[in-house]
């Protein structure tokens, strides 16, 4: 497995830990088995900086976004981009007829399938695996699996944009917009730029870079970034706010106008209408 797959194991380990809490934000019964072999070791390696609570808060934020958007919009086509060890297709309640596409590279998908099969996991909706290299053209593989760009879509891009360059992150949003019928939605997360430049982040960021998974992209102006790339923010939160892990975040939520604050953005957006 490549370096990004270890990141997927790390996320799974974080979800496994969350699932055992009395006040768990979600329960992922498969996460522990998906975290092997390195996930729990990476929790220690990347400790500090609020990452564990952030992973949990983000997971729940996106769970809620999926539930709300599908209920309100009637969208029946959900795409998890760089799904990693995500088990939402196996643990969430899905409206009848929902198709869930999980896009990731072939090795990861095969390994995940092997482990979930061994656990006897049954998807709770029409789940479709899409093996694709996200650094190349992947939309054809998605369409070959049944994705229909003429139907509205909910895109989920969890923990993905960090690993992209500015150009790649903007390109991803434009690509999603170009494949989105009117009424499509997007839910994802973005790092703050200040966080990536903070001297107090340096040790952690250096560790990630040494492990082959550097964090690169971030912005402190998420609304502008989305607008410039075909999307309109409908809900923007930071961890610790209501609906985003209030009471579980070990830091103050900094007012938006406070300079120098390290931001983590949790975002719901809709496709911008052509103007």
């Amino acid at each position: 497995m490549d370096a990004v797959s270890y990141t997927a194991q790390w996320m799974a380990a974080a979800r496994a830990q969350e699932s055992t809490r009395d006040d768990a934000l979600f329960v992922d019964p498969f996460a522990e088995d998906l975290a092997a072999p390195r996930g729990f070791e990476l929790i220690d390696r990347y400790a500090g900086g609020g990452l564990l609570p952030f992973i949990s808060i983000r997971t729940r934020f996106l769970d809620d976004a999926i539930r709300d958007v599908l209920a309100e919009s009637g969208i029946q086509q959900v795409v998890l981009i760089a799904a990693g060890m995500d088990t939402r297709a196996f643990r969430l309640d899905w409206p009848e007829g929902t198709e869930v596409y999980e896009v990731d590279h072939a090795l990861l998908i095969a390994e995940k399938r092997r482990r979930l099969d061994a656990l006897g996991a049954e998807p709770r909706t029409d789940r479709r695996e899409v093996s694709a290299d996200l650094t190349k053209e992947w939309m054809p593989a998605l369409e070959a699996a049944g994705f229909d760009r003429d139907r509205p879509t909910l895109w989920i891009a969890e923990a993905l944009t960090f690993f992209l360059t500015d150009e790649q992150a903007a390109g991803l949003l434009r690509l999603l917009a170009s494949a989105s019928a009117p009424g499509s939605h997007l839910a994802f997360d973005i790092l703050g730029r200040t966080l990536l430049r903070s001297p107090f982040s340096k040790r952690f960021l250096d560790t990630l870079a040494a492990d082959g998974t550097p964090w690169i992209f971030g912005t402190d102006e998420p609304e502008e970034f989305l607008t410039a790339n075909g999307w309109k923010v409908t809900d923007l939160r930071e961890p610790g706010q209501p609906g985003a892990g209030e009471g579980r975040w070990p830091y103050d939520v900094q007012p938006r106008d406070r300079r120098g604050a390290n931001r983590l953005w949790l975002i719901r957006a809709e496709r911008a209408t052509a103007s």
Partner: peptide, 9 residues
């Protein structure tokens, strides 16, 4: 690790 990146501000 008494002060991390998020606590720095």
């Amino acid at each position: 690790r008494l002060v991390d990146s998020l606590a720095f501000v």
